[in-house]
Lab assay of single mutants.
Amino acid sequence: AEKTGIVNVSSSLNVREGASTSSKVIGSLSGNTKVTIVGEEGAFYKIEYKGSHSYVAKEYIKDIKDE
Score class of each variant (00 low, 15 high):
Ala1Arg: 13
Ala1Cys: 15
Ala1Ser: 13
Ala1Leu: 14
Ala1Thr: 13
Glu2Gln: 15
Glu2Cys: 15
Glu2Met: 15
Lys3Gln: 07
Lys3Pro: 04
Lys3Cys: 12
Thr4Ala: 07
Thr4Ile: 12
Thr4Cys: 13
Thr4Asp: 04
Thr4Trp: 13
Thr4Lys: 08
Gly5Leu: 05
Gly5Pro: 02
Gly5Glu: 03
Ile6Gln: 05
Ile6Phe: 09
Ile6Trp: 12
Ile6Val: 11
Ile6Lys: 06
Val7Asn: 02
Val7Ile: 08
Val7Trp: 02
Val7Asp: 02
Val7Lys: 02
Asn8His: 11
Asn8Cys: 15
Val9Phe: 07
Val9Ile: 11
Val9Gly: 11
Val9Met: 08
Val9Trp: 07
Ser10Gln: 12
Ser10Met: 12
Ser10Phe: 09
Ser10Glu: 13
Ser10Asn: 10
Ser10Leu: 12
Ser11Arg: 11
Ser11Tyr: 10
Ser11Glu: 12
Ser11Thr: 14
Ser11Asn: 11
Ser12Gly: 12
Ser12Tyr: 13
Ser12Gln: 11
Leu13Arg: 02
Leu13Gly: 04
Leu13His: 02
Leu13Phe: 04
Leu13Cys: 15
Val15Thr: 03
Val15Leu: 06
Val15Asp: 01
Val15Ile: 07
Val15Ala: 03
Arg16Phe: 15
Arg16Leu: 15
Arg16Gln: 10
Arg16Thr: 09
Arg16Ile: 05
Arg16Asp: 01
Glu17Leu: 08
Glu17Asn: 09
Glu17Ala: 12
Glu17Ser: 10
Glu17Thr: 07
Gly18Met: 10
Ala19Trp: 05
Ala19Leu: 04
Ala19Glu: 02
Ala19Pro: 15
Ser20Trp: 06
Ser20Gly: 05
Ser20Arg: 05
Ser20Gln: 06
Thr21Val: 12
Thr21Gln: 11
Thr21Asn: 14
Thr21Met: 15
Thr21His: 15
Thr21Gly: 09
Ser22Arg: 10
Ser22His: 11
Ser22Leu: 11
Ser22Ala: 11
Ser22Asn: 11
Ser22Met: 11
Ser23Met: 04
Ser23Tyr: 06
Lys24Gln: 08
Lys24Pro: 10
Lys24Trp: 04
Val25Asp: 02
Val25Ser: 05
Val25Glu: 03
Val25Trp: 05
Ile26Asp: 01
Ile26Ala: 04
Ile26Met: 06
Ile26Leu: 08
Ser28Leu: 12
Ser28Asn: 09
Ser28Pro: 02
Ser28Trp: 14
Ser28Tyr: 13
Ser28Lys: 14
Leu29Asn: 00
Leu29Ile: 10
Leu29Met: 05
Leu29Ser: 01
Ser30Arg: 14
Ser30Tyr: 10
Ser30Leu: 14
Ser30Gln: 14
Gly31His: 15
Gly31Cys: 14
Gly31Lys: 14
Gly31Glu: 08
Gly31Gln: 11
Gly31Tyr: 13
Gly31Leu: 10
Gly31Met: 12
Gly31Asp: 11
Asn32Thr: 06
Asn32Gly: 15
Asn32Leu: 09
Asn32Tyr: 11
Thr33Lys: 05
Thr33Ser: 10
Lys34Cys: 11
Lys34Gln: 09
Lys34Trp: 09
Lys34Ser: 07
Lys34Asp: 03
Val35Ala: 01
Val35Pro: 01
Val35Cys: 03
Val35Ser: 00
Val35Ile: 09
Val35Gly: 00
Val35Arg: 00
Val35Tyr: 03
Thr36Leu: 11
Ile37Pro: 00
Ile37Gln: 00
Val38Asn: 03
Val38Ile: 13
Val38Gln: 03
Gly39Met: 03
Gly39Leu: 03
Glu40Lys: 04
Glu40Ile: 07
Glu40Leu: 06
Glu41Asp: 09
Glu41Thr: 08
Glu41Gly: 03
Glu41Ser: 09
Glu41Cys: 13
Gly42Gln: 04
Gly42Cys: 05
Gly42Val: 03
Ala43Asn: 12
Ala43Ser: 10
Ala43Pro: 09
Ala43Gln: 11
Phe44Trp: 13
Phe44Glu: 00
Phe44Met: 04
Tyr45Asp: 00
Tyr45Gly: 00
Tyr45Glu: 00
Lys46Trp: 05
Lys46Gln: 07
Lys46Asp: 01
Ile47Ser: 00
Ile47His: 01
Ile47Asp: 00
Ile47Pro: 00
Ile47Trp: 00
Ile47Glu: 00
Glu48Asp: 08
Glu48Trp: 15
Tyr49Ser: 01
Tyr49Lys: 00
Tyr49Pro: 00
Tyr49Leu: 03
Tyr49Asn: 01
Lys50Asp: 09
Lys50Asn: 13
Lys50Ser: 07
Lys50Ile: 06
Gly51Ala: 05
Gly51Ser: 06
Gly51Phe: 06
Gly51Arg: 04
Ser52Gln: 12
Ser52Pro: 02
His53Asp: 05
His53Gly: 04
His53Val: 13
His53Ser: 05
Ser54Arg: 11
Ser54Asn: 06
Ser54Trp: 09
Ser54Asp: 01
Tyr55Lys: 00
Tyr55Cys: 01
Val56Leu: 04
Ala57Gly: 08
Ala57His: 07
Lys58Asp: 00
Glu59Ala: 12
Glu59Trp: 08
Glu59Pro: 04
Glu59Arg: 12
Glu59Asp: 08
Tyr60Val: 04
Ile61Cys: 03
Ile61Asp: 01
Ile61His: 01
Ile61Ser: 01
Ile61Trp: 02
Lys62Tyr: 10
Lys62Pro: 02
Lys62Trp: 10
Asp63Cys: 14
Asp63Arg: 11
Asp63Val: 15
Ile64Phe: 09
Ile64His: 07
Ile64Asn: 06
Ile64Gln: 06
Ile64Leu: 10
Ile64Ser: 07
Lys65Val: 13
Lys65Tyr: 11
Lys65Gly: 10
Asp66Ala: 11
Asp66Met: 14
Asp66Trp: 15
Glu67Gly: 13
Glu67Gln: 13
Glu67Pro: 12
Glu67Cys: 14
Glu67His: 12
Glu67Val: 14
Glu67Ala: 13
